[in-house]
Design a protein around this nucleic acid. Structure first.
Lengths: 342, 342
DNA sequence: CTGAAAGCGCTAACAT
DNA sequence: ATGTTAGCGCTTTCAG
């Protein structure tokens, strides 16, 4: 009838003890030497593997955690996965990965699925925050940590990147190295990162005494091809630098420049963001702003684990906490000195 | 005492019916109009979400599938994830992702964890096959599909890449475009892909009437930095082409060539393998051999779903099947014509 | 130290 | 059409 897999019952029969004793031995609770031996022998002879589902139903915990990200193909999320995995694995949790493609309905579904008890907690990285998100976060059936910015009154732990300051860092650097026509390839304007990077770009421009020129700015989706197309279009406006909202866009931009026979950085400088593995994939290596993806992932995982620990304790739930990872400019060859107009 | 989450019991009480009726309504089995309405209202008022764990315990299935790959940072596996996800999602399964770092013990642990009933089936992509793998595959507690080659006598479905033929395709092409000193940056020699690519390289060399020169060959691990280092070393031996066992290595090699001021493809041609997203990330775009990663992922998922369907039926288990995806050469600028020795 | 028994939330006979 | 009841495999009181 069943799956044929050994259970505590089969072990108990074989060892001639009760299922309670089997459970105790298997969980390292005290038992007589003799009992321990017989149970262990029976278990290994039968090739017993505890049924995690049954254990979860009883214990109320699955020891699984979920990470939902917009795009598994984007290296910045890979970095987060690695960081999160390191922390959660050490704590004895499996990690379930979800790629939502930044589709709002998918994100909401993940949030609601916390109620199905498939995982004990969730780290989610939405790039847009709608009212539905806020509502779903408020009513989440389990602990959630958001990687990204969200309104202050949403009672959820969050880990943020400071992309405003990050964008400023990049633009200032470009200005410092002599560029004056700094183009900007940004992500979608209706996303939080897109919006913030735009703010940083404008602020830095103002700081440097440069005027904002809409013809030097493009919004597109995050991705190599998009970066190439946007940069292509931008070239008609003779920029001396292209700042991109992530490394994928920057790689695409660099390709477009090469295709036009322009030299990087002599003719046009290029800078990216995220300082992902891609920053050192092309030529020349890209200057990029590290937004602390690894640190954000680690921190998010730690926050989630803390919540989980507290949930067990009798303590009331402490107020939500929010950390912001500081940005860091990593200078590489793509923003070296401009050609001297001999 | 419980988690406070609504259950069938709370709904039954609120709707004034039995838990059986609740279950029926929730599962779309016939019931009187009146009953349906009251149950549905109660459920939505309570914000009920079925407990998937309890459902699994009862039904014996989790509707979760696992994909275990060597490295989540390698775009070729990202392509597989996408393909697998598409198929499994359509069939109503969640996908659990595991990055094993190609560590044998991790892979074995994943294989054995099938016994804990956390997921209904497994797709695994090992790059080494040890005796322990074979043993674990034989005794797997659930359906498994292997992406990769394994001994014929292992009774498991598998989906293979033809990397021997793939490597031949690339080397022939390099030869056709006039290259005669074709260097090879390969992955670890103790892996199945590494071994096969080496075979293809040698076979093609022989076919083209070229001699195998060990000083033109390097083994390293798969990764951009490794590719750069290996190519760097190879340059002392004046190759006119560098064939790399994957796109990451090729990107690294391209970077090393650029750093030395060599032109691609005029001075040295570069070709990669996998035709991943990275092939079009750098400059010039890379010629690469598509090993059918998307198709392999899709096929693996289909095979697994078939096994799952059959497991339910009374049919005896059919013999294992093995598919091989044909390789396809994608020519891009990195292997354009060599400079004419004016 | 050990066994009997309850019950986690749900589905599926079986009865009514 | 609906209610009662028996488990799925496990952990954990509660007695002995």
């Amino acid at each position: 009838m069943g799956t044929g897999q050994p259970t505590v019952v089969s072990i108990a029969e074989r060892a001639g003890v009760s299922i309670a004793s089997v459970s105790r031995v298997l969980n390292g609770v005290g038992a007589r030497r003799d009992t321990v031996e017989r149970v262990e022998r029976a278990a290994s002879e039968l090739g017993y593997v505890p049924n995690a589902v049954a254990r979860s139903l009883k214990g109320g915990r699955t020891r699984q955690l979920t990470f939902a990200m917009p795009d598994i193909g984007n290296p910045v999320y890979v970095a987060m996965v690695r960081a999160i995995q390191t922390v959660t694995k050490a704590a004895g949790y499996r990690l379930l990965l979800h790629s939502t493609d930044a589709v709002v309905d998918d994100e909401l579904a993940v949030l609601r699925s916390l109620g199905d008890r498939t995982s004990d907690g969730l780290i989610i990285c939405p790039i847009r925050i709608t009212d539905d998100h806020v509502e779903a976060l408020r009513t989440a059936a389990g602990p959630v940590v958001v990687i990204g910015s969200l309104p202050d009154d949403v009672p959820v732990d969050s880990v943020r990147a400071d992309s405003v300051a990050g964008a400023e860092l990049a633009v200032r650097h470009l200005h410092d190295t002599g560029r004056r026509r700094i183009a900007f390839v940004n992500g979608p304007s209706d996303t939080v990162p897109g919006h913030n990077r735009d703010r940083g770009y404008r602020a830095a421009l103002a700081d440097c005494g440069l005027v904002y020129d809409p013809s030097l700015v493009r919004h597109t989706d995050f991705g190599i091809e998009s970066g190439a197309e946007a940069a292509e279009a931008l070239l008609d406006h003779a920029p001396d630098a292209v700042f991109c909202a992530n490394d994928q866009l920057a790689l695409g931009a660099a390709r477009a420049l090469h295709a036009r026979g322009l030299r990087i950085p002599e003719d046009v400088a290029v800078a990216g963001m995220d300082d992902s593995m891609l920053a050192q994939a092309g030529w020349p290596p890209l200057t990029s702003v590290d937004l602390g993806s690894t640190e954000r992932g680690r921190r998010a995982a730690e926050l989630l684990l803390e919540r989980l620990g507290i949930a067990g304790a009798s303590t009331g739930n402490p107020p939500p906490r929010s950390t912001t990872a500081p940005p860091r400019l990593v200078v590489r060859a793509s923003t070296g000195p401009a050609a001297t107009d001999s």
